[in-house]
Design a protein around this nucleic acid. Structure first.
Lengths: 157, 157
DNA sequence: GTACAAGTTCAAGTTAACTTGAAGTCAAGT
DNA sequence: ACTTGACTTCAAGTTAACTTGAACTTGTAC
């Protein structure tokens, strides 16, 4: 419980974890995936500059929006390496998120409308209701492992 | 019953798979999880009554709505065992789905509003923005993976 | 100087919902 | 009878995003 680090610019992994709400194991995992990085002065213990917090914030936000860590890595790679990323840089990366959320909302709306229709009329059946058909599906939507629900297999016929 | 058409009433697993769009392996898996069942007359091959299609439809829909197979199993267990489930039975089971979808939409709406605010003002930071950590869902959700940060909130208040 | 908290690596485990593979059986057409 | 395709079981693999555990080292408070 020592907060005597006021002078130093660098944060330990525990401090970063506490400040970000992201577990230390997750931070090591992110580093392994090259989403963040750290210095190792002397002891081998990780030290992070404060800017890592913003990077972590980006990762957490992006996950909420539905990006995978791989996609997030691609986005992060677009940041300038020669200078500290500014507000505009971050903003550019997240510019597509609103549209993405809108699409998710729209898809849920269609699902809801379809449910009302299908259950209201009692035709809860795969023959009749296009709702469950893979033609109209959207992967990565909402909760649940969409990977397995999507059309991994061709369903022609 | 009286005017039975014999075995032609029963479907093979391949037929059910084709009609439902659900892979045969998934059907076996569902049976193992006791979400559906089958007869085994003679050969050991599964034979399904047509009513299984409606049951499968329910499973697929429920997944789209975001229920896990375990939750779906609980729901299906509420169906009457002494008679064939009717429209009302199915409808009762899915009565909460619309509200559930509405909650998901509302949450996405909040996310979007928060994004506009946070990115617009450039405060993309975990310190300031409550968005990334609504309640305490990000930190300390207990063991196991925090899948997608979107679903692990069975404990919502 | 000695606890003990906090850090390290690495491999393996967790979760959901399946899929894949191996090795064998059954059914239908010719 | 033979061939082909559909079916069977069972165990193990897949995916993402981490977590957990073991064995060990470093940092610091007293």
């Amino acid at each position: 419980m020592c907060f005597s680090r006021g002078v130093s610019d660098l944060l330990t992994i525990g401090e970063v974890s506490r400040r970000s709400g992201v577990a230390a194991s997750a931070l090591r995992f992110y580093e392994q995936r090259e989403l963040i990085d750290s210095e190792r002065p002397g002891s081998g213990h990780r030290r992070y500059p404060r800017t890592v917090l913003r990077r972590i914030a980006f990762i957490v936000f992006a996950q909420r929006v539905g990006l995978t860590l791989e996609e997030i890595g691609v986005e992060l790679a677009k940041l300038p390496r020669d200078r500290a990323p500014g507000r505009r840089d971050w903003s550019r990366l997240s510019s597509g998120w609103e549209a993405r959320i809108d699409r998710q909302i729209a898809e849920l709306g269609r699902l809801k409308a379809g449910l009302t229709e299908c259950i209201g009329c009692g035709c809860l059946s795969l023959d009749r209701c296009k709702l469950a058909n893979p033609g109209d599906r959207v992967a990565g939507l909402g909760p649940g492992p969409r990977f397995w629900l999507g059309d991994t297999r061709r369903t022609d016929g």
